[in-house]
């Protein structure tokens, strides 16, 4: 089996300051990788380098494309990267406002990616949009409402629908539950877990919330000051942390 994503000694510097350094990992099809660490540990930098939003200074990010096999996304052309970004990849932002078109209706938001890859039949686009609104538990009667009229949790679910409609194989999530209250978080996690498992998606989830990792991720990578300090199976890392920082992180979780 070919790995879906292979990251080799990826580094990104901001001037002299290290964003993330010497990151290596392999993501297999159907696997969910969690990246945890405190603010400023380089999680988001890493994710942006993986998703092609930012160019890393060194290293390779090899993605197993549908048609051409494994390709280095760092050296491929911008148009190829954009094509991947609207077909095989999905990116769920922490703030749904960054990932949605706020002045376009919910249906238009979901149809956006379909039209970007060449769908030109209004009826079909609308049917698919309706179907996906249903799957993320948004009332289908609200298809023509703008995201402004939605609650935070609904906006986040709409963002997920908009990303998954083209059947991506790899989803990047940046703090998908940040900014939501706990009960809404729980529902969203439930939904995400269901979708990821049912569709057999691979995902890279960046979060500072260990509960999210516990629920979603198969494997976890712990980052500190731009370096990966520990990685392994989620339960193993969380139940038996080896590195001092991971131990600190795990013990800082509030028990209710």
């Amino acid at each position: 089996m070919t790995p879906l994503l292979q990251v080799e000694s990826l580094s990104k510097f901001y001037g002299n300051h290290l964003g993330c350094g010497e990151v290596n990992f392999t993501l297999w099809p159907g696997e969910v990788m969690g990246i945890v660490g405190e603010s400023g540990s380089g999680k988001s930098t890493l994710l942006n380098c993986l998703a092609g939003h930012m160019a890393p200074d060194t290293g390779r990010v090899i993605f197993d494309t549908r048609t051409n096999g494994p390709r280095d996304t760092v050296t491929m052309t911008e148009s190829e990267r954009r094509w991947l970004a609207r077909t095989d990849w999905a990116f769920v932002h922490q703030n749904p406002r960054d990932g949605l078109r706020m002045n376009v209706s919910a249906g238009g938001n979901v149809g956006d990616r379909l039209m970007a890859v060449g769908a030109r039949h209004y009826g079909d686009i609308r049917r698919q949009a309706q179907d996906w609104l249903g799957r993320v538990e948004i009332d289908q009667a609200r298809i023509d409402d703008r995201p402004r009229a939605f609650s935070g949790g609904m906006q986040q679910r709409l963002q997920i629908a908009r990303n998954l409609v083209t059947g991506p194989r790899l989803v990047f999530m940046d703090e998908p539950t940040g900014g939501l209250d706990v009960s809404v978080q729980a529902r969203l996690l439930d939904l995400l877990r269901g979708l990821v498992r049912r569709l057999g998606l691979s995902a890279v989830v960046v979060t500072h919330d260990l509960a999210v990792v516990r629920l979603l991720a198969d494997r976890v990578m712990v980052m500190k000051d731009g370096r990966v300090v520990e990685q392994g199976l989620t339960d193993q890392v969380l139940d038996d942390p080896q590195h001092a920082y991971t131990q600190l992180l795990v013990s800082s979780v509030l028990q209710v």
């Binding site: 954009r82 956006d112 039209m115 970007a116 030109r120």
Partner: peptide
């Protein structure tokens, strides 16, 4: 324009029909 990334144009037409 350079990358022929024109999905947005159809989003506008979609919005017109929806509205």
């Amino acid at each position: 324009h350079a990358l022929e990334d024109y999905g947005l144009m159809h989003v506008r037409l979609y919005e017109d029909i929806a509205k």
